[in-house]
Amino acid sequence: MRVALAFLVSMAASVGFIGAYQLDAGTQWLALSLSIALGSLGAGLAWWSRRLMPQESSEEARPTLAPPPEEERETAETFEAGRRGIRRRGLLGGLLAAAVGALGLGTVWPARSLGPPPSSGFRQTGWREGVHLIDETGRRIGIDTLDFGGVVTVFPEGRDPAADDQVVLMRIPLEDLDLPEGRANWTPDGYVAFSKVCTHAGCPVGLYQDVGYLLLCPCHQATFDVVQGAVPVFGPAPRELPQLPLRADRDGLLLAAGDFSGPVGPDRWRLGEVKDGDA
């Protein structure tokens, strides 16, 4: 009785589902009707099984998995007999193995098409001396774009920006800056620029705290102290963010004064080589 009712409800709900679809009644009506259809069908089957079908425990012998010794021996002998025949032609067997191996290697070789070898164009960014800074809409950044306490994401002008090109540009009063040796003239009018690619796992270091001058990556909370040269102060980042040296031209526009101070992006095996190449 209950089972029959469940099946009837299910049927009605299925019709309801079709109706909801035809009327374009929306996700929730579709879900409601379909889950009633599914659920009452499931409950009906469960009731049927539990109430109307045999529920007494049955017993079944468990099969033996380990074969009887003589069968094991016979199998081994059959195999050995064949193998002795092969072993008499030892050279042929060896050649066959080598040929199959070579064929395997050959057929897998085109997997190289999946990607270029990493040596070509490894970690070249679009930044070099004299490139203008533009924002995401293509506007050039000038010396008056930001107030002190401002932040903007910038890209190198004149090229489709690559992932490693993104730079976070901030403006900080010069007296607050405490950058490493040799970077004194990298910050015209307090503009400081660092790679926006986190040195931990590559997320954009998008979170800028104007008080305390911290850059923070929202993925794993790697935190960088901007005024010290974006050195990591908390979280998993092992390395500082590379800085982009800046200068201003006569029209008051900002330009890159060179490439980054170090390798962009997360650590990787051959980081050392890149470091030498870039610096």
Partner: peptide
């Protein structure tokens, strides 16, 4: 104005 730790966004930006 960029209150507290929030950066500010000028009209030029």
């Amino acid at each position: 104005i960029g209150p507290g730790a929030m950066p500010q966004f000028s009209e030029r930006q």
